[in-house]
Every structure is written in C-alpha cells, then in structure tokens.
Design a protein around this nucleic acid. Structure first.
Length: 376
DNA sequence: AATTCGGGGAC
DNA sequence: GTCCCAGAATT
C-alpha cells in the first residue's frame, strides 16, 4: 500500500517523521504516563470489547460511570448473550447510541453460538460481528490479543493528519500510516495504539494543542508548516432543526402508561411516555390528544402540565411539553410502538428511558409520585 | 461520500 | 451557542 510510505518532501521542507524514531518517542512518552482509562490493565477480551464499544463516540469520563456496573451485571459473554434486551438497555440508559447495546448483545449471542463463547482474534472475524467496525476490531486485536493492528479513532486521525500533514486522508491512508508505526515495534502494538489515542486526547487536542510538550513535535510536519490548526479540516453544520413534541402521562389506578419504541431507529427499544410532534398551528395538549388517538387508539383528557423539557440531540433539538392525562375511552393498543405497560411511578426506574424522559420522571418523583387529585 | 444515531463536557 | 468525543451501519 503506497499510502503507507510518506512521500518524499520537496526541497527545503522538514524531514518527514520517520516511523522508527516516532515509535520510540511515543513509547517513552506513554511509559511515563499515569494510566487511567477504566479498562487499562484488563486482559479479558470480553471486558476490553465492552469498553471499546462503550467508548465509541463517547468520552472516557462518561464510560467510567457505566463500565463497572455493566460488567457486574453482565460479567461474561454468556451472561450478556442470555440477557433480555430490556435489561441490557437499562444498563446502557444515558450512554446514547442505543444500537450499540442491541448490537453488543447480538454479537454476544453470535460469539456463544459460533465461537464457543470466546472472542475471535482475527480482525476480519471481529469486524464481521455486529457493532464492531474497523476501529473496534483493531483495538480488540491489539489490546486483547497483542496483534499489530491499527486502531484509528478520532484522536488518532487528528494526530496522524498533523504528524504527516495530511489534508484529507482516507481511512485506508490513515491505517497505512498507523501500521507503519506499529511495524517498528509490533511487540508493543497495544501501547503504541494507546499512545496515539492518549496523545490526541491530552496533547494533540482539536483546539490549542500543546505542541511545546509534544513528544513528536520534532517530526510533526504540520507543526513545521504551520498547518496544525487546519488538520484535520472542520466541516461546519447548519442550524439544528427544532421539533416541538407533546407527551401525555396517562394515569389509571395509580399507574402510568408507557410505550416502547421500535427496536430500530432513533432511541430504539427505549421506553417513553406516549406522544408526538406538535403540528403547525396546533396547541400541545391538542397534539397529545391527537397522537394518542392515532398511535394507541384511545381518547384522553389532558389535564395540568407536568413541565417542559428542552433537549438537544446531535442533529436536532426538541422542546417537550408534558401533561397529566387520563383515559376517557378505549383501551390502548400499541401500533407505532411495539409494546406498552402500565407501571407504578417507582417502577419506572426498572425501564430504560431517553434522557429527556428521565427529566420528566424526575418531576414526577418531586411530585411525590402521585397524579393530580382529580386524576387519582 | 453522506446520513443517521445520544448525550454530555469543554469552550 | 458550537464542536467533538477511543465509530458503526446504511444508503
């Protein structure tokens, strides 16, 4: 792969970083650092796999809060494979990207049935499992099995883009550069991968990187050329769409109605209070009545507001208007949702909810878990 | 190559 | 407010 080899520089440009010296510099720097990622020191491939999936697009400090409890709940591949999806999602509640939890469980079942409950070592086989892409396959192969496989995450992409001053590198090009570094010390591939990631998160940061204290500053082409702030390029996004949503907390005999979202798609498999989009020119209570009629086939009376929640997702933001309500006619049947349940307020803690709904549940608890007197 | 898919922390 | 995070899957 020709991309793996740095091109010869034009005259009067800095020497290209030689992978040889670079690997040594990275390892010396890495060896002197405190090791604080939650799975550092782990040798169980299962536990490393769980950590890497949790870490996808998620900060380490966030993963830290979920990692221990998840492993306590699901200590090995077999326990995860045998678990109900609802229970896995509950352990994932608040982490986001809930397809990860569904795929993690699906992959566990495949590992049990196809691999005798042991993760395969080969990157290609890892890559074929649900939820394991190029990065995670390389991370597991190197961290758990010691193979010299690249693991290019967002940090490494930024570090390599700067070290080699690459304006728009393809994934294959980045993996080639990473592999060239690993091949110098294949015996320490895991440490080199982690050094590149750690460097990106602590020194070679997106804005105001600490180049003066970077172990690779001497061979960084972008630093020499003054292009660090342009590597990698930022692509600006447009303004976030804004959705206004109305939801109903329907009470009956001291229980509230919740519905489960379809497994696929946004917030797949999570529970929520039923409701939907407020159409133009529509008042939120009116929207709540219409949505429950359409989705559950019931007529409701909308009562006093429970509160309003603002919440931002990656690609849009919502304003959530919630109201106490009660049934007037009909027995709810899930059509858009794939299940429903009547639960006591304190039992809500047993179900996995999106963050915005958790804010509503908080308010229910502040209200002593009781409906307005008129809805008792 | 572009989109979808969460949530939160840093700035 | 914007950006980005130890990305994967789909189109």
């Amino acid at each position: 792969m020709s991309d793996a080899v740095p091109r010869r520089p034009a005259r009067c440009e800095p020497e290209p970083p030689d992978a040889d010296g670079l690997a040594g510099a990275l390892l010396r720097w890495f060896d002197g650092r405190s090791r604080d990622v939650p799975w550092r020191g782990e040798s169980d491939p299962y536990r490393i796999w769980v950590a890497e999936v949790m870490a996808q697009q998620t900060r380490i400090d966030t993963v830290r809060d979920y990692y221990g409890p998840f492993l306590e709940r699901f200590p090995d591949v077999d326990s995860l494979a045998a678990a109900e999806l609802d229970d896995v999602l509950k352990a994932w509640e608040g982490l986001g990207y809930y397809a990860r939890a569904r795929r993690l469980r699906a992959a566990a079942r495949e590992i049990v049935s196809e691999y005798g409950s042991r993760l395969p070592e080969e990157p290609e086989r890892l890559r074929s499992l649900p939820g394991i892409g190029a990065y995670t396959a390389g991370a597991i192969a190197s961290l758990a099995f010691g193979l010299p496989e690249p693991a290019v995450d967002g940090n490494v992409r930024r570090v390599l883009s700067r070290l080699f001053d690459l304006a728009a590198p393809t994934p294959a090009a980045l993996e080639g550069r990473a592999r060239a570094i690993l091949d110098i010390r294949p015996d320490r591939a895991a440490d080199l991968n982690q050094a590149l990631m750690d460097l990106g998160s602590s020194v070679c940061t997106p804005t105001s990187p600490a180049c003066e204290s970077c172990p690779a500053a001497g061979t960084c082409v972008a630093l020499a050329r003054g292009t660090v702030s342009e590597r990698p390029p930022v692509r600006s996004r447009g303004p976030l769409p804004h959705r206004i949503v109305a939801t109903a907390v329907v009470w009956r005999d001291g229980r509230v109605l919740i519905t489960r979202r379809p497994a696929e798609g946004l917030l797949g498999g999570l529970w929520e209070f039923p409701g939907g989009k407020v159409e133009a020119g529509e008042a939120p209570p009116e929207a709540a009545r219409r949505e429950l009629a359409e989705e559950l086939g019931v007529e409701i009376e909308v009562g006093e507001p429970l509160g309003t929640v603002e919440h931002a997702y990656s690609h849009f933001r919502i304003t959530l208007h919630a109201y106490h309500a009660r049934l007037l006619a009909g027995e709810p049947r899930p059509t858009a949702a794939d299940a429903l349940a009547w639960v006591r307020p304190r039992e809500l803690a047993d179900y996995a909810f999106p963050a915005a709904n958790l804010r509503l549940i908080e308010r229910l608890r502040d209200g002593a878990c009781t409906p307005p007197s008129s809805f008792g």
